[in-house]
Amino acid sequence: MLLIQSFKVLNLSASKLCRQSIRCLSQHSTNRTDPSHSNVDQQEVDRLSQLAAEWWDPAGRIKPLHSMNALRVPLIRDGLIATGFVPKEQIKSPQVLKDLNILEVGCGGGILTESLARIRANVVGIDPGEKLIQVAQNHAQTIDPNVAGRIRYLVETIEEHSPKNVGIYDAVVASEVLEHVNDKVSFIEHCVMALKPGGSIFITTLNKTNASWLAGIVAAEYVLELVPKNTHDWEKFISPLELKRILSTFNCTTILEHGMFYEFWRNQWSWCSRTDVNYALQAVKQVEV
């Protein structure tokens, strides 16, 4: 709370200094001389890859991601409708996202990827975990071929993918990924790079608060054992305020912010007004003039 209040009283010159600092950090991130640099924590990748065998078990340790689709899919669908990317004749049809191109960054085993393809989006799912991409590809072979035909999986990071695919996606999705990222400025910059002007970036992640430490780590990992221990590092969490500040630096305007609440006793997610643990954002890439 003190941090939020302190930001509210910053004057204009301080805000400009903050934006300049982020741009400098971004330039430093993208101008590294090592072309093999990627924003990947291999320990994080290995930890998630250990869950590959049970990724598609809706009653297993990944079940919160399965049930989260009840919020994530409408968030993306309705967000693209609201920003005018969906023709009127498609809005109430099962083909609502027909012909729209979506990039899912950190797709894991493809839980959200497949759901977006089922409402006719063309989805590219990227992830640095080879085991997880293999799980996603194997599962895609078991579903409707028409749905599978709208999905493409790649073992890539966003830093590798976006320079080859500048401005081609109607939406970029990073769901439950940002809390595992080291260099968030570089990550956001490359997500925006792949986005069309007017397109939307959708993010779900964890706030950096005492409540998120208690709920997201202590309770979820050690008390209730909803996810494996050491899945999260509180130091990598990020507040909505900081995330919106980074997005604005890369010419993106946040148009939606929701809190998310997980009822673990029945494995169900709901929207809420509080953003102190889980939250979702939609930001739109502005057309440069």
Rank of each mutant, 00 (worst) to 15 (best):
Leu256Pro: 01
Thr254Ile: 07
Glu263Ala: 11
Thr231Tyr: 00
Pro240Tyr: 06
Asn230Lys: 14
Asn230Ala: 11
Arg266Pro: 00
Asn267Ile: 03
Lys244Pro: 03
Glu235Leu: 04
Glu263Trp: 00
Ser273Gly: 10
Lys236Ser: 06
Trp271Gly: 06
Gln268Ser: 14
Gln268Cys: 12
Thr253Pro: 00
Trp265Cys: 11
Glu242Ile: 10
Lys236Val: 05
Lys244Ala: 09
Val227His: 13
Thr231His: 03
Trp269Tyr: 00
Leu256Lys: 08
Phe261Arg: 12
Asn267Glu: 10
Phe237Leu: 05
His258Val: 02
Leu243Glu: 05
Phe261Met: 11
Cys272Phe: 15
Trp234Ser: 13
Pro240Trp: 07
Phe237Lys: 05
Pro240Met: 01
Leu247Cys: 08
Arg266Trp: 15
Phe237Arg: 03
Glu235Asp: 10
Asn230Gln: 13
Pro240Thr: 06
Arg274Asp: 15
Trp271Leu: 14
Trp269Met: 07
Trp234Val: 14
Ile255Pro: 15
Ile246Leu: 12
Ile238Cys: 09
Trp269Pro: 15
Trp269Phe: 00
Trp234Leu: 14
Ile238Thr: 10
Ser239Gly: 05
Trp234Gly: 06
Asn267Phe: 05
Val227Ile: 14
Asn230Asp: 09
Pro228Cys: 12
Trp265Ile: 15
Asn251Ala: 07
Ser270Met: 12
Trp271Asn: 12
Cys252Leu: 06
Leu247Glu: 05
Trp234Ile: 14
Leu247Arg: 08
Phe264Ile: 03
Cys272Thr: 15
Asn230Leu: 12
His258Gln: 07
His232Ser: 04
Glu257Ala: 09
Ile255Met: 06
Leu243Pro: 12
Thr253Phe: 01
Glu235Val: 01
Pro240Val: 03
Lys236Trp: 06
Phe261Cys: 11
Ser273Asn: 13
Pro240Lys: 06
Cys272Gln: 14
Met260Phe: 07
His258Asn: 12
Ser248Ala: 10
Asn267Leu: 04
Ile238Lys: 02
Glu235Phe: 15
Asn267Pro: 02
Phe237Thr: 04
Ser270Tyr: 05
Leu243Trp: 00
Leu256Thr: 08
Phe250Ile: 02
Glu235Lys: 14
Thr249Ala: 03
Phe264Thr: 04
Asn251Thr: 03
Trp265Asn: 12
Ser239Ile: 10
Trp271Gln: 12
Ile246Met: 10
Glu257Ile: 06
Pro228Phe: 08
Gly259Asn: 07
Arg274Trp: 06
Trp265Met: 15
Phe261Gly: 07
Leu226Ser: 11
Trp265Val: 14
Ile246Arg: 08
Glu235Asn: 14
Ser270Glu: 08
Thr249Met: 07
Thr254Ser: 07
His258Asp: 08
Leu247Thr: 07
Phe250His: 05
Ile255Gly: 11
Arg266Gly: 01
Ser239Asn: 11
Val227Met: 13
Glu242Phe: 00
Leu241Arg: 10
Arg245Asn: 11
Leu256Glu: 13
Asn230Thr: 08
Ile238Val: 15
Leu243Gln: 10
Gly259Cys: 02
Leu243Gly: 04
His232Phe: 11
Phe264Leu: 06
Phe250Glu: 01
Glu257Arg: 03
Gly259Ala: 03
Ser239Trp: 00
Asn230Cys: 04
Phe250Met: 01
Phe261Gln: 12
Trp269Leu: 07
Ile255Cys: 12
Glu235Ser: 10
Val227Ala: 07
Trp269Arg: 11
Leu226Gln: 12
Arg266Ile: 03
Arg266Glu: 10
Leu243Thr: 09
Thr254Val: 15
Trp265His: 06
Ile255Tyr: 12
Leu226Ala: 04
Glu242Gln: 09
Thr254Ala: 08
